[in-house]
């Protein structure tokens, strides 16, 4: 049996968007398509301003994901923790929906007695370990983020290390915004290994605008493209299997 695929966007930024559509709306759109949006806000020594913080929380909330604001030095730990937490959250959502169907309208995991909850949790753990995961990483490379990019790269290697220890398959893609010509630019196509990033990341140049909304919108289309491509491949495989029989 084919296990389900979890789709996530991981947005790494250090402040407020200033160009194009409202990123919170784009995150809500992502959620409608079954894609979770997580946001990590990266700080230097300075604190993040109120509007930036509100936007970070807003995007994650609308995107059904997790948000966390951290100093650059804690980034590695945070990236993997946020991704994991969001996976569990999504899976729990799925399990809760199933529970509702079985037990009636307003039952969630918390309403079960602790003994039963443990059993449900084991199912969630199992799914989290074996499910296929697609993470599209969207890195803000505008202005002040430039000095933090080496740390971001390291954190992404670390994420790959953590997630590739799972039984389930992983697919990562890395995009940066703003791009040279467009709002968003692909630096790494879907791959199970983020290590391939080392050759592409240092080439980045940082620009002035921060088009978080448009970047999110374009990232969404990339999930779809991939989907259709993959279904093509998998139907091919089926064909082969049949012919070999």
């Amino acid at each position: 049996m084919r296990k389900g695929t979890l789709k996530q966007i991981l947005l790494i930024t250090d402040g407020c968007s200033n160009h194009g559509e409202d990123p919170v709306a784009m995150a809500a759109l992502a959620r409608e398509q079954g894609i979770t949006v997580n946001v990590i806000g990266v700080l230097d020594q300075d604190t993040i301003d109120e509007s930036g913080l509100r936007e970070i929380e807003g995007i994650a909330m609308a995107g059904g994901g997790v948000s966390q604001v951290v100093y650059a030095t804690q980034l590695s730990q945070t990236v993997q923790m946020v991704t994991r937490k969001a996976m569990t959250q999504t899976l729990q959502g799925v399990v809760n929906r199933e529970l509702k169907q079985i037990l009636g309208s307003d039952v969630t995991m918390e309403d079960l007695p602790p003994e039963k909850r443990g059993e449900v949790m084991e199912v969630v753990d199992e799914l989290g370990e074996t499910a296929e995961l697609e993470v599209l990483i969207l890195v803000d490379t505008s202005g002040s983020m430039k000095t933090k990019l080496p740390t971001v790269k390291e954190a992404l290697f670390d994420l790959s290390l953590s997630l590739n220890a799972r039984i389930g398959d992983n697919h990562f893609a890395v995009f940066v915004f703003p791009g040279k010509r467009r709002d968003v630019e692909k630096v790494l196509d879907w791959t199970p290994k983020l290590e391939a990033l080392s050759t592409v990341f240092p080439k980045l140049t940082s620009g002035g605008l921060t088009p978080t909304g448009p970047a999110l919108r374009e990232a969404l289309t990339y999930f779809k493209k991939k989907r259709s491509l993959r279904s093509l491949i998998s139907s091919d495989e089926q064909y082969f299997e049949e012919s070999s029989m």
Binding site: Q77, L161, L163, A165, R166, I167
Partner: peptide, 23 residues
């Protein structure tokens, strides 16, 4: 055989580049 759930960098072989985070 699963992925390590929680770790602390100093004691984590992944951090030191000495191996995977497989349990």
């Amino acid at each position: 055989g699963r992925a390590i759930k929680e770790f602390t960098e100093f004691y984590d072989r992944g951090y030191w580049g000495m191996g995977s985070r497989k349990a």
